[in-house]
Measured scan of single mutants.
Amino acid sequence: EALDLGTCKAKKKNGEPCTQTVNLRDCEYCQYHVQAQYKKLSAKR
C-alpha cells in the first residue's frame, strides 16, 4: 500500500469522516473541503 495515499481528514456536515482518497504528499484534505474552507474564509473579509 502506498504511504502517500490516504483519506481526507475533514468531517462531513453530518459528523462522519470524509471518505475521499487524497495524495497525502499534496494535502491532507480533498478538493471539496479545501474549496469549501477557502470560500468560508474569503467571505469574512
Rank of each mutant, 00 (worst) to 15 (best):
22 V>I: 01
36 A>D: 11
28 E>G: 12
30 C>N: 02
11 K>T: 11
42 S>D: 15
12 K>F: 06
24 L>Q: 12
13 K>M: 04
31 Q>G: 12
7 T>G: 03
40 K>I: 02
16 E>Q: 15
24 L>G: 15
41 L>R: 08
16 E>D: 15
8 C>D: 02
26 D>H: 12
13 K>W: 01
2 A>C: 03
20 Q>K: 08
7 T>C: 06
6 G>R: 12
35 Q>H: 08
34 V>E: 03
38 Y>V: 15
40 K>A: 15
21 T>K: 15
41 L>F: 05
31 Q>I: 03
41 L>H: 10
31 Q>K: 14
5 L>N: 10
40 K>H: 05
36 A>S: 09
10 A>S: 14
14 N>A: 07
6 G>L: 09
39 K>I: 02
17 P>S: 05
4 D>R: 02
33 H>I: 00
34 V>T: 12
3 L>F: 02
24 L>S: 12
1 E>Q: 07
30 C>V: 00
18 C>H: 00
37 Q>Y: 04
3 L>E: 13
12 K>Y: 05
21 T>N: 07
3 L>S: 03
9 K>C: 06
20 Q>P: 03
8 C>L: 01
1 E>D: 03
19 T>A: 11
7 T>R: 11
42 S>M: 11
41 L>M: 15
11 K>M: 13
4 D>N: 04
13 K>G: 14
21 T>E: 12
14 N>Q: 06
14 N>I: 01
18 C>E: 06
30 C>T: 14
2 A>H: 14
42 S>T: 07
32 Y>K: 14
13 K>R: 08
20 Q>V: 11
35 Q>G: 13
37 Q>P: 14
42 S>W: 03
33 H>N: 02
11 K>G: 05
27 C>Y: 05
33 H>K: 03
1 E>L: 00
5 L>I: 13
24 L>N: 11
35 Q>W: 02
23 N>W: 07
36 A>F: 07
9 K>H: 08
14 N>V: 04
33 H>A: 03
29 Y>E: 07
43 A>I: 04
12 K>R: 14
35 Q>N: 11
35 Q>M: 04
6 G>I: 08
11 K>S: 08
43 A>R: 05
33 H>D: 01
20 Q>C: 05
32 Y>I: 06
34 V>D: 12
18 C>G: 01
9 K>N: 09
19 T>F: 03
32 Y>E: 15
26 D>L: 07
32 Y>L: 12
25 R>W: 02
21 T>A: 09
2 A>W: 01
23 N>F: 07
27 C>Q: 06
11 K>A: 06
7 T>A: 13
29 Y>A: 09
16 E>K: 14
31 Q>S: 10
43 A>Y: 15
1 E>V: 03
6 G>S: 09
30 C>D: 02
2 A>L: 02
35 Q>I: 05
21 T>C: 05
28 E>R: 06
